[in-house]
Design a protein around this nucleic acid. Structure first.
Lengths: 205, 205, 205, 205
DNA sequence: GATGAATGAGCGTTCATTCAT
DNA sequence: GATGAATGAACGCTCATTCAT
């Protein structure tokens, strides 16, 4: 089977885009959306201001692109980790561990991500909708696992989606605590803490 | 004749300040900090732009004042509700219920509040410190209740502060879900869901 | 002989005005016209902002009033000193000494005065005219003395007005040098220097 | 082919800067620093407001740049004129003539210059220092000539620096008189008047 | 008369976006 | 495609002036 068909131009374009995205993530993470300038991102990416507009139509566009790319990567990482283990218990633990570890490795992205999460509430409707899709996407696989657990009676009967969101919230809270420096425990201890709480809260007895 | 001690001027000043604060809350809630202008707030308050500067030194000042006033009121409300009941279990439930109910009643404020919570991660250090104080303040009373519960063996042994933050996170998550319209359940059902999860997660057996 | 006729009200008014004027002079001198606020002057005078508008119609008005009052006092002082001596030579020396000494004593005023002198060139025509009157007023007595000296052949024949302005310029320059700290000589030495130069420049042989 | 070394970009930049400077000089001259707006300067230069900030960091910066450029040109002109003649007497005359003629040709600049000279007294220390340097710079060559004259006994013994400042003051005064319209004499007559006064005042016998 | 809270026009500065090279 | 000079709308903040008390 021959080349999947990316022309040289497309490759260059993708490379540029990912470079810009990485720069954007760094910049937005350190200064927030409003206090970052396109110039900042351009400098961080080592290109000229105008070039960014060849790849993204506006500052907001760039921001969303950076955010989306990060979320997709994050979700994929979680999926990978969850697919690698077998039981409901393990999968839930994998989800939590994957998120917390990912956050440790990608602090930049998480800063943007949480910042956006807060702002989403004050954002235009259209943006909220899209953000919701992305956010729920990651909860979906978790809620399937939970539904499975409920079916097998490993978990007590409860709405899988609500439970999934609860897990996400708890994990999120722990990540923030670590990020802001309120938690001094080891990564593994914090993962264990969240999992314990959740497992005791959800399991059947 | 007992003078309650406030001169007419002081009364007027307080009234103006609270009017401005209310307008600020509304405006910041609907558009976020950066996309709100002082002019917007002034209009919402029915006064002139310059007048705001008679009461608050800067846009940021006004923002913080609106935020702080709201947090203080929120914490007081929670304290009141928790003080009104006796057992550890009831107090925990009171905390959760108080928060969720308060959020229903004060949607404006919560929008600002969560927005800030996200942005805190990208904010100047000094602001983070103050915000942290306010945020931890509300967790403090909860962690005392938990410590009490642990002492009485009603709760399994765990770090009270971490547990308190976990409760706050879970409650927060539920409020956001309701706010964004992802939860269609009744307020009481949602309160119950959070409490169940927490109680099962934390209690001894 | 009875009262010269100032009612109590007028006395109060005059007192207020002179207090305000003094405050204005101090404030304008230290910060310049544009960087001084009416509030500054009010504070310096120990009264409320609005009160100033009972005595002066605008900030500019107040400024001019402060300037004029100072110039009048300065001119009167020079007249007094010049009237106290007899010869042309002494009168010229008296003028120079009076100005330099007055400047030492009234640094505030001179700062405003010179500042205005510079700005006069960029000021509206009407203001320039009035300023010109005041400025020439002080040169007038000097030019009469010079005319007298020319008539008596003590001075070589030259246009009295031009000579008067030249004396004023030289004196002014010395005052500025002292004010800015470029001259380290004693007041008397500086007076002598200016006078020597002038006298040699103007006298007949 | 010899490249003189300026890239096209540099040429454009220099052109823009000098255009802006010229516009600034005109505007500041006619309205003064505080009553001129950046918008005014931009309009006068036929460019957009923002463009000015590409070349000057602030309004004050622009002002100083306009002032400095003018002073440097003025000093160079005087140096040229003085270098072209041989005797002490001629050099002093050249200084006076150069200044007065330059003022006739550059009324805009002189208006700004004198305005600044007055304001210098109320300006922040740092600015005064720089202005002092520029101002003294022009007096320096004059005081060397005077020192020379004193050495050759052409001038009576006196402090060269004080004498230089006196010449500058007198010249300055004459320029102002011409500028404000108080002198109706011809340029040459006014030059002669100042020179006569100075020469008689300074020369030996 | 005296006050000082309220007003709102005005300005310096920033920065997302455009477009000629 | 890449650049970065140019643009101009937008906004935070100031302060002279007014006027109800």
């Amino acid at each position: 089977m021959l080349s999947v068909g990316k022309s040289k131009k497309e490759v260059v374009t993708e490379f540029r885009q990912s470079e810009i995205l990485a720069a954007a993530r760094r910049v937005f993470a350190s200064r927030g959306f409003h206090d970052s300038t396109i110039e900042d991102v351009a400098e961080a990416a080592g290109i000229a201001k105008g070039t960014i507009y060849l790849y993204y139509a506006s500052k907001l566009d760039l921001y969303w692109a950076a955010l989306k790319a990060g979320i997709v990567a994050m979700v994929e990482e979680a999926e990978r980790q969850m697919a690698a283990v077998a039981t409901v218990r393990e999968k839930m633990q994998a989800f939590i561990a994957s998120k917390i570890n990912y956050a440790e490795a990608q602090k930049d992205f998480f800063r943007v991500y949480f910042s956006e999460f807060g702002n989403a509430l004050t954002h235009p409707a259209e943006m909220q909708r899209e953000f919701k899709q992305l956010y729920l996407g990651q909860a979906r696989m978790l809620s399937q696992v939970i539904a499975d657990g409920v079916r097998r009676k490993e978990l007590r009967p409860l709405a899988p989606e609500s439970a999934a969101l609860a897990i996400a919230d708890l994990t999120r809270g722990m990540i923030v605590q670590r990020m802001v420096g309120w938690s001094k425990a080891s990564v593994d201890d914090d993962i264990q803490f969240v999992f314990d709480l959740i497992w005791k809260g959800l399991s059947n007895r």
